[in-house]
């Protein structure tokens, strides 16, 4: 599948695009992707999170400012950006300032290779999946540096927890993804999506597509749980445990820095949703014409977001030692078992 800049260059009439055009189109497409994802996060953060939480808690949430309360997005952004930047005396300045930027940056870099449908993909390297995991795990650096550099004990505890969590659940995440790579035969994300075309089985009028989520739901469940841990959502939101550590690694951040952390968290949720969608839910595949791909892709990442909010309302937070046990003893074993099983099945069938 041609990536968007290449496709645009061809459309403009250049069979082999010169460097300046390639760079220009890269920038343009990157800008479009970043804008779309930022808008999605901006919609999700102030608005959707509250609306969804209100649904679970039998309340009417924001509905005063603007139609359906959408004006809150503007109000919240203005409010957060205009807040005073309170920087503690003991903060380690360069590290303290850089850390909030790492979180959204790592997520946005990850979005570069995700095929979002309708040709919207910035680059399609051969090692796409490995690139995504490599880049998104930079977030733990941001969290631990931010927590440690804040010079506050709550932040320290939160950052230590977050980094332990990230490391513990990285392996099950990657190993489960590896089982998908075995099924698809390639690390390239567009190949993985292409391998999920077609129908798995037809049950009467309903044709179940050949998505890996239907082929191996166990792997999808494992991956979803590990993704929840990577992102830091219930039951694994210890890094930022609101009722225990005030704010975890975010405690000492305010104003713009807080917005960046907040945004970064949502972008990571959407990135995880994007990876889940690409690996297990067929990415932009869906009924209808091919140009609707973006819509289906969007629906799938929003479904993942909804799933995390649902967990937030009903699933308690577990303790750090229990979390490490589940990660190192439970999920690791299960993901390796899944990998070996998949390898056997692929070896037998193919």
């Amino acid at each position: 599948m041609a990536t968007a800049p290449v496709a645009l260059a061809e459309w403009l009439g250049y069979a082999a695009a010169p460097l300046w055009l390639e760079l220009l189109l890269d920038v343009v497409v990157a800008g479009i992707i970043v804008t779309v994802m930022l808008l999605t996060s901006a919609l999700a953060g102030p608005w959707a999170k509250r609306k969804i939480t209100a649904m679970f808690t039998d309340r009417i949430a924001i509905n005063r400012v603007g139609p359906f309360g959408l004006g809150y997005i503007v109000a919240d952004s203005v409010r957060l950006l205009s807040k005073e930047l309170i920087i503690p005396d003991g903060a380690d300045r360069p590290a303290y300032d850089v850390a909030p930027a790492v979180l959204p940056l790592s997520a946005l870099l990850g979005f570069a290779v995700v095929p979002m449908g309708s040709g919207l993909q910035l680059a399609d390297p051969e090692i796409g999946l490995a690139y995504v995991f490599a880049v998104s795990s930079m977030a733990s650096v941001g969290m631990v540096v931010g927590g440690y550099a804040s010079g506050s004990k709550y932040s320290l505890l939160g950052s230590m927890r977050s980094v332990a969590e990230s490391i513990a659940y990285e392996i099950p995440l990657v190993v489960t993804a590896a089982s998908v790579v075995l099924l698809a035969g390639s690390l390239r994300l567009s190949d993985i999506v292409a391998a999920q075309q077609g129908t798995l089985v037809s049950l009467g009028p309903i044709a179940i597509p050949a998505w890996y989520g239907f082929l191996n739901p166990f792997a999808m469940a494992l991956f979803a749980v590990a993704a929840l841990a990577e992102v830091g959502r219930n039951p694994f939101d210890l890094g930022e445990a609101g009722t225990e550590l005030v704010g975890g690694y975010i405690t000492e951040y305010s104003g713009v820095y807080f917005v960046l952390f907040f945004l970064g968290e949502f972008l990571h949720i959407f990135l995880s949703g994007a990876i889940v969608a690409t690996l297990f839910l067929g990415g932009p595949l869906g009924p209808g014409p091919a140009w609707l791909g973006v819509v289906w892709f969007g629906a799938k990442i929003w479904a993942f977001f909804l799933f995390t909010q649902w967990c937030r309302s009903a699933v308690p937070r577990i303790r750090i030692d229990q979390m490490l046990q589940i990660g190192w003893k439970g999920l690791l074993v299960l993901s390796f078992a899944n990998l070996i099983l998949t390898a056997i099945i692929v070896g037998v069938i193919a």
Partner: peptide, 10 residues
């Protein structure tokens, strides 16, 4: 339950 589930618990 608020203490154990976090701030968004139903």
């Amino acid at each position: 339950c608020l203490d154990i589930y976090g701030d968004f618990t139903a």
